[in-house]
């Protein structure tokens, strides 16, 4: 880890905000955390923030970022994060000491006033520039007009400009309303004590997710390909995805038609259809635990961890 990386790393464990108790969604609001997760932990998430002025927006989303339940679970299990109750955190933050809030408001107002002043000044400078130019152009051929030139020319512009220009910039300038893009100066980070239980994930899909993640793959939601995860061999900005992954229970009955459909879909988009899941009874598969097919060392596996087997389906071309 370079010095820069460690500087940008968030304070661990960082909060993942869970909004709503019924349809649980896991959000991140801090861009540093988001970029750090992507760079060092292969966690992609999905940006869901759109601009208020374009409600039809469906590309180029921004913060907040929504995590898949599997991603949130993995981060919590690794001890990097904890789940914070967004509702409670927000309520507490709003009830934060009045002085801090007042300070914040004062700062915001000061900034807004400064912006307004700067804009007014800019306007005045522009007006004067234009006036001077007009003076120079009209003044040279007709010397008589130079005296009363100022009056008619200025009247072209609306009187309000004249009024403000006659006076120095003063407190009469109406402060701009400022919309802060961040809210974290006054809102304290929630404490780890208030952490919520782990997200609910299906055991089969989580096992597959964890397995692929441990092998260094990046996973994004696979809804657009009718699978659970699109699996990328590196950052999706640099690589196309290799697999369309589907988690299954060890004894789950998989329709042959689904395998064929998945294989055909995958081959059509130059990907493989990958099925996988956690091995149930280990007595048959001890051999595989010892020599994992991908050469990944099994050292450091906790006893609760599971071995995962995967199969890839491709169209044969005949």
């Amino acid at each position: 880890m370079t010095v820069q990386d460690s500087l940008l790393a968030p304070d661990l464990p960082f909060p993942i905000f869970q909004i709503s108790q019924t349809v649980r969604r896991y959000l991140l609001y801090d861009i540093n955390t988001v970029t750090w997760l992507r760079r060092t932990h292969n966690i992609l998430g999905v940006f869901i923030g759109s601009l208020p002025q374009s409600p039809q927006q469906n590309v180029f989303f921004g913060l907040p970022m929504e995590l898949q339940p599997e991603e949130a679970t993995l981060l919590v299990e690794k001890g990097l994060a904890f789940i914070a109750d967004d509702f409670r955190t927000h309520k507490q933050a709003v009830r934060s000491p009045p002085r801090a809030m007042a300070n914040y408001k004062a700062t915001a107002r000061k900034e807004a006033l400064a912006t307004a002043k700067a804009v007014t000044k800019q306007k005045q400078l522009k007006t004067q520039e234009v006036l001077q130019r007009l003076n120079v152009r009209q003044g040279t051929p007709d010397a008589d007009n130079t005296v009363d030139n100022d009056e008619p020319d200025e009247s072209i512009f609306d009187t309000s400009t004249q009024e403000t220009s006659s006076r120095p910039v003063s407190s009469s300038v109406i402060p701009y309303s400022s919309t802060p893009t961040t809210s974290y100066p006054p809102i304290p980070t929630p404490s780890k004590q208030s952490s919520l239980p782990l997200p609910e994930v299906s055991a089969s899909s989580y096992a597959l997710f964890k397995h692929l993640h441990a092998l260094g793959y990046f996973m994004s939601p696979g809804l657009r390909f009718g699978c659970q995860f699109s699996v990328y061999p590196g950052d999706p900005l640099r690589f196309h995805s290799h697999f369309l992954a589907m988690g299954h229970d060890w004894d789950e009955e998989i329709d042959i038609l689904d395998l064929i459909g998945g294989g055909r879909l995958g081959t059509g988009v130059k990907k493989g259809w990958l099925i996988g899941g956690a091995v149930k009874n280990s007595d048959d598969n001890e051999k595989h635990v010892a020599t994992s097919e991908d050469g990944q060392s099994e050292i450091g596996r906790k006893p609760g961890d599971f071995h995962v087997r995967t199969f890839c389906v491709e169209w044969s071309g005949m």
Binding site: P233, K270, K271, E293, F311, E314, W315, G317
Partner: peptide, 16 residues
């Protein structure tokens, strides 16, 4: 009869 290739483990796909 349709034929599909099934690999044991993770094998990257062909680029047809």
């Amino acid at each position: 009869v349709v034929y599909y290739v099934v690999h044991d483990g993770i094998v990257k796909p062909r680029q047809n």
